[in-house]
């Protein structure tokens, strides 16, 4: 871990890879990008989290694509099998493969970024640029609140069971219990947010003007160069794709 990536470098790399993969639209490239992300995740020690998060997203998508295009693809000509209205076509399977691998590659690349980036560094880097500081606040505050809310929800559930709430199987009973859990949660969160707003304003959050940063995030020139190159590459890929397939409405 000698090379410490500036958050923007990692973000640029992820975004440009995703854009190029989308523009290229070739499943071997998508598979290669996906595999490369997985290998990098293993080397950074986040493979478990990245792959499980990706699986939760991708498995239903794959199944859905397979059923949808594998069985029903009216545009397909090469029929491999047919049961009544369902026809398995080579074109449909190929379409499912193309889109499935493309999405998988993009998901893996972005998850690799979000599970390896240091959020404080990212927020600090965002506020150092001309990005509205409010954006960094929303991002970081959400990531702080999420685990805290899970704990709070558990406390609320315990407190309500203690008051005699028994969650039974029926849909209405569960929906009713849910309503009772949501109300204290929303109330407490809004209350806290109200005082946090007052505290933030008192500390100068609402006032315009320049800001400085306590955290120092190094941004070596080599990484800036890399980012510029990645941008050019991605732009070229998009441009190429647009030129090649522009007359979408005309002669195809």
């Amino acid at each position: 871990m000698t090379l410490r990536l500036h958050p923007f470098t990692a973000l640029t790399a992820a975004a440009c890879t995703a854009v190029i993969t989308t523009a290229a639209a070739s499943w071997p490239l998508s598979v290669a990008v996906g595999l490369a992300s997985a290998v990098l995740a293993v080397r950074r020690g986040v493979a478990g989290r990245v792959l499980s998060a990706a699986a939760v997203i991708l498995v239903p998508l794959f199944l859905s694509l397979l059923v949808l295009h594998g069985l029903f693809f009216p545009e397909g000509h090469t029929v491999l099998a047919a049961w009544g209205p369902a026809r398995v076509t080579a074109e449909g399977l190929r379409f499912a493969l193309e889109l499935g691998t493309r999405t998988a590659a993009c998901v893996l690349v972005f998850l690799l970024f979000s599970f390896t980036v240091s959020v404080p560094d990212l927020v600090s880097a965002l506020s150092a640029r001309r990005i509205p500081p409010q954006f960094g606040f929303v991002l970081a505050s959400t990531l702080t609140l999420l685990p805290a809310v899970a704990g709070r929800l558990e406390r609320i559930r315990q407190a309500q069971e203690t008051r005699g709430m028994v969650i039974r199987g029926g849909l209405w009973s569960r929906a009713g219990a849910l309503r009772l859990q949501m109300i204290p949660l929303v109330l407490a969160l809004m209350d806290d947010a109200g005082s946090r707003a007052q505290a933030l304003e008192a500390r100068g959050f609402g006032s315009p003007g320049p800001r400085t940063s306590y955290r120092d995030v190094a941004d070596p020139p080599a990484q800036r160069l890399f980012r510029a190159a990645a941008f050019v590459l991605a732009a070229a890929a998009v441009a190429a794709r647009l030129v090649v397939s522009w007359p979408a409405g005309g002669p195809s």
Binding site: F73, G76, E98, S245, W246, A248, S252
Partner: peptide
């Protein structure tokens, strides 16, 4: 005709 390939454009 999306059969020509994924709608990258």
């Amino acid at each position: 005709d999306i059969a020509n390939g994924p709608a990258s454009f």
